[in-house]
Design a protein around this nucleic acid. Structure first.
Length: 855
RNA sequence: GCCCGAGUGGCGGAAUGGCAGACGCGGGGGACUUAAAAUCCCUAGCCGGCAACGGCGUGUGGGUUCGACUCCCACCUCGGGCACCA
């Protein structure tokens, strides 16, 4: 029956049982030997169908590869393998984002120096990554802690510096008292440190910033055309936070002048500084204008007071001597408050009057100036015009302190005299607004702005929530910011020829409370000669944010070997922008925003030819375990190794993709692995031993199902619907093996490439056993489907009577309504439900459904 | 409070406005086996019925439609993001 055993061919496997570990070990070795997954620099240069398939590179933690990493990587790898089976030349690199607070904190906890710990983590991570069966190009990896990498990170800083996009400025910044460093706005989640969860303090420090705000408009506009997951786009849109309104200026009616030598000398200094940065206001001591940002210029007639943020530089200037004590006390209290408490919205409004007055440019009235912590220095101008009638916060404040409330908008059914129990936020028509009475609010916003503009009291303005990117970190484990401070020459960039500025080996790298970087302890490192004048100078001792390392790594991969340039012009042109980028949603406003900004800046500097780095981005979902979030404290974190040992990487990969829609995540259950294992095992069993395979052509019904399956798997993978693609393969194999029938080669052979993206090792093995040479991924081996062959000859048509299912009829595909109707009316059950009623109307969806409406 | 998602069998999850529950796990029964694994067959939303079949059923309430898991309105619950943003 089985024929005579085939004599073993040299190098061919003859094992009859599916042994995942043996198969996987064998193929991983072969891939490495053959260089299956690596591109030579020549291939990179000459590729005709380049496809850059990118996944967010990992931070190599000491805990090792987490199943979350593997989930992300596998989903991305499947896409890359699929593209490759379609004949594209796929570049799929991997690297390590190994600088940063997270690594450093871990090293501190372990008591091991990061310069020792990180390389060992990377080795361990690499070992794990090699087992998951991804087609990484191990010839083109990056490690952000390698001086040959970070020299270019520093180079990047210098390019931005030269372009005026990097500036050092004194600014209120987020300080994490636990990590003992400043954080970018994007790294503060709900007022707490993204890394450690500690409530963040506010400090005023001099820090390096990248002027990402200059790109706010373009970062926002491009979101309209880049092909990104909708949720990610939305997150960026919200983060950038564009709002259209006006800047309006209120003249201080009674500027109080500090007498020389008084305690208010600082106040005068602050006011001078304020004027220096607002030359448009005219000179100091001429008059003083306080600009406010508002989206509701239509309510200007209702602005009955001004509120400044406690930190606002003109506070001391407008405060009268009688109020100075209370104002100072309030400012101190506000400064001492942590951000979470300060930004709580449910607490009672607090504030104090400065005693100063300003003039409402619309009404000419004198209105009091207050300070309150509900006004934030970091948004808008740090000052607001308070319109208690039409802003709930201002309303509460006015109630609290007995300030005037005036209605200037009448909603539907309201008049100028309708009392206000709470702020009326909605639209309506203007009242109590002079000549503008009766004008609809939407229209009056512009009209009033223009009216005020004519009188020099304001102009239209767009405001963004986005802040400049603070990149200074008072930590050790990062690339030193390549700047030297010289008493004579000031801030001097390190000459490019002196890069990299190596991170020195410092034994005591622990951060401290002072806000001064650990590198400041390495005196023989930071004392240098000024590159300009040769005089004594000192290096910047802060390092840069990890997110700078990862903001350009995708540019480095193709040029990973190049010592002369960060990214080769021609290679970059060929391979970028990235064709497909897959990663986690948690980086929507961090990495993804920064990478876009850096790319735009490089484009403006003429260094790359595109301004969006990732044409297509897809976020993957999150895995949970047995219904609850995976976390170390719950002890339910899945470590891939043990599963790979038990089931093999192919089963594990396939299961991860099967357990739910990739872009939404899913629930990991140990029991679930059995299903995908069964698929692989049954496919193996259907093909091995080869001489048991039939050589007949597939019966028509199976051939049809095969073509339907090819179509479905192709479409589903393209849309990252991996779970349903796998389900289709299972369904097809069930049909092939139904009733234990003898399987023909023509029925199962095409399944091998269809399964290959998910389970590449077993696919290679079966492909080889089927007699193919050179490996399944060596060329265009993805099967094509034939629409004609995929078409069903007979279809089941549902018959409804008044919308309820009463029969199912097998009819030839393409049956016309008349024939279908006749068949339906011949059905006994249909007739029974119709009784003696007549058909009033029939809805016929060919090949699907016939609904008879009777009455 | 605002902005996104999502609520479907015992469970994970499928369904261009057209047969709800594909596929898988788990369960029950059976075949093969000394036995187990693997494999195969049958069964399986809930209620009633021996069955044919009927009724009910996609978080809740309404609406649009011949027909709604799918579209619209209101609400509830869960997850995520933002949050005194002027």
């Amino acid at each position: 029956m089985f024929g005579s055993p085939v004599p073993p061919i040299a190098g061919m496997s003859t094992e009859l049982d599916y042994d995942p570990i043996a198969v996987e070990t064998k193929w991983q070795q072969r891939w490495a030997e053959r260089g299956t997954n690596t591109l030579t620099d020549g291939q990179l240069r000459d590729a005709e169908r380049p496809f850059y398939n990118l996944m967010m590179f990992p931070y190599p933690s000491a805990e090792g590869l987490h199943v979350g990493n593997m989930y992300a990587f596998t989903g991305a790898d499947i896409y890359g393998r699929w593209k490759r089976l379609q004949g594209e030349q796929v570049f799929e690199p991997i690297g390590f984002d190994a600088f940063g607070i997270h690594s450093e904190n871990f090293a501190l906890r372990m008591g091991t120096h990061p310069m020792q710990l990180i390389p060992s983590n990377i080795r361990n991570f690499t070992r794990q990554l090699k087992r998951i069966g991804a087609m990484y190009d191990w010839n083109h990896t990056v490690d952000t802690t390698d001086p040959e990498y970070y020299r270019w990170t520093q180079w990047l800083f210098l390019q931005l510096f030269k372009a005026g996009l990097a500036e050092k400025k004194q600014a209120p910044v987020n300080w994490c008292p636990s990590c003992k460093t400043v954080l970018a706005n994007e790294q503060v989640i709900g007022g707490a440190c993204e890394r450690c969860g500690t409530v963040v303090e506010q400090r005023t420090l001099s820090q390096w910033f990248f002027r990402i705000t200059r790109y706010a408009e373009r970062l926002l506009d491009n979101l309209r055309w880049i092909d990104w997951s909708e949720t990610t786009r939305k997150a960026q849109e919200n983060w950038i936070g564009r709002s259209e309104g006006a800047e309006l200026r209120f003249t201080v009616a009674s500027p109080w002048r500090a007498s020389a030598g008084s305690a208010a000398a600082t106040a005068v200094d602050e006011a001078r500084a304020y004027h220096a940065s607002h030359p448009e206001n005219g000179g100091y001591e001429q008059h003083l204008e306080i600009p406010v940002f508002t989206t509701r210029a239509d309510t200007i007639f209702g602005a009955t007071f001004l509120v400044l943020a406690p930190e606002h530089p003109v506070v001391a200037w407008v405060t009268t001597p009688e109020r100075a004590g209370e104002v100072a006390a309030y400012r101190e209290r506000a400064a001492a408050m942590d951000l979470v408490t300060r930004k709580k919205t449910d607490k009672e409004k607090t504030g104090v009057s400065t005693g100063g007055y300003a003039t409402n440019p619309a009404t000419g009235e004198r209105i009091p100036i207050w300070i309150a912590d509900y006004v934030l220095m970091e948004y808008g101008t740090g000052a607001i015009m308070a319109v208690p009638g039409h802003d709930q916060r201002d309303f509460e404040f006015a109630r609290q302190f007995g300030l005037g409330i005036r209605r200037v908008v009448a909603g539907p059914g309201e008049s100028a005299a309708t009392p206000l129990d709470e702020a009326y936020i909605g639209e309506g028509t203007l009242v109590n607004s002079g000549d503008f009475d009766g004008m609809p609010t939407e229209q009056s916003r512009h009209a009033l702005t223009m009216w005020l503009a004519e009188r020099g009291a304001g102009e239209p303005r767009v405001n963004y929530r986005l802040h400049d990117w603070c990149i200074s970190r008072q930590r050790y484990w990062g690339p030193p910011i390549p700047v030297i401070y010289c008493d004579a020459c000031g801030t001097v960039p390190v000459p490019e020829s002196d890069l990299p500025v190596r991170l020195p080996l410092v034994d005591n790298y622990k951060p401290d409370e002072s806000g001064i970087s650990p590198l400041a302890r390495a005196e023989d490192w930071y004392r240098v000669a000024c590159p300009q004048c040769g005089g004594p100078a000192r290096r910047e001792t802060d390092v840069s944010d990890t997110f700078l390392d990862s903001a350009w790594y995708f540019l480095r991969y193709p040029s990973a070997h190049r010592a002369d340039t960060p990214f080769d012009r021609e290679l970059t042109k060929k391979w970028l922008p990235v064709n497909m980028y897959i990663g986690g949603e948690e980086h929507a406003v961090l990495h993804l925003l920064y990478a876009r900004f850096i790319t735009m800046a490089l484009r403006d500097l003429g260094l790359v030819d595109f301004e969006e780095p990732f044409l297509t981005f897809r976020k993957h979902g999150l895995l949970i375990k047995e219904g609850s979030k995976m976390s170390k404290s719950r002890g339910n974190v899945v470590i891939p190794d043990q599963y790979i040992e038990k089931w093999g990487a192919d089963t594990f990969r396939t299961y991860l993709m099967f357990l739910g829609p990739y872009q939404e995540g899913g629930d990991f259950r140990d029991q679930g692995l059995q299903g995908p294992y069964g698929l692989l095992n049954r496919l193996w069993d259907s093909i091995v031993p080869l001489d048991r395979l039939g050589t007949d052509p597939a019966p028509e019904a199976l051939e049809r199902k095969l073509h339907q399956t090819i179509r479905k798997v192709t479409e589903d993978i393209a849309a990252l619907r991996y779970n349903t693609a796998i389900a289709a393969l299972m369904e097809y194999l069930n049909a092939v093996r139904e009733g234990g029938r003898k399987v023909n080669r023509a029925e199962v052979e095409p399944m091998v490439p269809l399964l290959a993206p998910f389970a590449p090792h077993i696919a290679e093995e079966l492909w080889e056993r089927l007699g193919h040479e050179g490996g399944i991924f060596s060329g265009h081996n993805w099967p094509a489907f034939d629409e004609d062959k995929a078409r069903d000859a007979a279809v089941e048509v549902a018959v409804q009577v008044n919308g309820k299912l009463r029969a199912r009829l097998m009819l030839p595909a393409g049956t016309g309504e008349d024939v279908a109707r006749a068949a339906a009316l011949a059905d006994e059950n249909v007739r029974r439900h119709m009784g003696n009623l007549t058909v009033r109307k029939a809805i016929y969806v060919p090949d699907r459904l016939l609904n008879l409406v009777v009455g």
